[in-house]
C-alpha cells in the first residue's frame, strides 16, 4: 500500500468514525460556524460606523476572515492531530506512531479529524461566497489563497507544537499559537518595515492575511507565486523542525499496537 492510498484510507476511516456519532459532529460543526459568524459580526458592526482602516474596507476584512477560516478549516479538519503534538510529546504517546512503518509526521497529523473545524470551513466558504464577486476567476483565486494560508497556519501549528521537543510546556505552546492566530486574523495595516519583514520571515503570519489580501486587491503574478512558494517553504520548515525535535524525543515506554 503506497503512502497516498494509506492516507486516503485513513482519512476515510476517520470520517466514518466521526459520522458514527453524527449528532455530535453536527452540533460541534454548527456551534463553531455560529461562533465564527458571531465574532465576524464585530467587524460588520464596526464597519457600519467607519468607512475604512488605512484602505482596508469591509471586503478586505471579510476576505481575510473568510480565507483564513476556509483554509484553516480544511487542514485542521483533516489533520486533527496537529494540535495534539505537544501533549503527545510530553505524555510519551508518540511511541505508538514511531512503531508504524509510515512517516511519523503523517501518522501524527492524520490520527483523527476535528469536527469543529468543519464549521470553520463552512464559515469561510459562506463568507467568501458572500463577499468575493461571484465569478469563476476571483472565486478560484480566493480558494487557492485560502488553501495556501491554511497550509501556512498548519505549518505554524506544527512548528510551534514541535517546540515541545525542547521542553516548551503545553500552555506556552497553546498561547504561542493563539498569538499567531491573533496576528493573522486581524487587519495587518500600517505596519512598519521591521514588522513587515518579521511577518514575512520569522513569524510568517503575513502569508495568512497580509499578502493574500494584497493579491486579492490587485492581482500580481510575482506576488501570487511568492505566496505559493512561501506556503510550501513554511510546511517544509515545519517538517524539518518536527524531525529535528524527534531526535530529542525520549520514549514514554508506551509502545502499543495500533490499527
Amino acid at each position: 500500500m503506497n503512502t497516498l492510498h494509506w492516507l486516503s484510507c485513513l482519512i476515510a476511516h476517520n470520517i466514518k468514525q466521526q459520522f458514527s456519532d453524527r449528532k455530535n459532529f453536527l452540533i460541534l460543526s454548527f456551534v463553531m460556524f455560529a461562533q465564527n459568524l458571531l465574532f465576524f459580526q464585530m467587524w460588520t458592526i464596526m464597519f457600519s460606523r467607519i468607512s475604512n482602516i488605512n484602505g482596508w474596507k469591509m471586503e478586505q476584512v471579510a476576505f481575510l476572515f473568510g480565507s483564513l477560516t476556509f483554509g484553516f478549516g480544511i487542514f485542521f479538519f483533516l489533520m486533527g492531530g496537529s494540535n495534539l503534538i505537544a501533549r503527545q510529546i510530553h505524555s510519551g504517546a508518540l511511541d505508538s506512531f514511531l512503531a508504524q512503518p509510515r512517516p511519523v509526521i503523517l501518522s501524527v497529523l492524520f490520527q483523527r479529524i476535528r469536527p469543529d473545524s468543519f464549521g470553520d470551513f463552512l464559515t469561510g466558504l459562506l463568507i467568501l461566497l458572500f463577499y468575493v464577486p461571484l465569478a469563476f476567476k476571483p472565486l478560484l483565486l480566493s480558494m487557492i489563497l485560502g488553501v495556501s494560508s491554511g497550509l501556512v497556519m498548519v505549518a505554524l501549528r506544527i512548528t510551534i507544537e514541535s517546540l515541545a521537543f525542547w521542553q516548551l510546556s503545553e500552555e506556552a505552546v497553546d498561547n504561542t499559537f493563539i498569538s499567531a492566530i491573533i496576528a493573522a486574523s486581524n487587519p495587518q495595516v500600517g505596519y512598519g518595515p521591521i514588522a513587515k519583514i518579521l511577518i514575512l520571515t520569522i513569524i510568517p503570519t503575513g502569508y495568512v492575511a497580509f499578502l493574500p489580501v494584497e493579491i486579492m486587491r490587485s492581482f500580481s503574478m510575482p506576488l501570487f507565486l511568492w505566496q505559493l512558494v512561501a506556503s510550501v517553504v513554511c510546511i517544509t520548515v515545519a517538517v524539518v523542525v518536527f524531525y529535528r525535535g524527534l531526535r530529542n524525543y525520549s520514549s514514554g515506554n508506551n509502545i502499543i499496537m495500533m490499527r
Binding site: 500552555e171 497553546d174 498561547n175 504561542t176 493563539i178 498569538s179 496576528a183 486581524n186 495587518q188 495595516v189
Partner: peptide, 16 residues
Amino acid sequence: STTMIYLVLLYIFSTI
C-alpha cells in the same frame, strides 16, 4: 506566554 499574547494584541490594534 499570556503576556506575549497581550503584547501581540496591543501591537496589532495600536496600528489599527
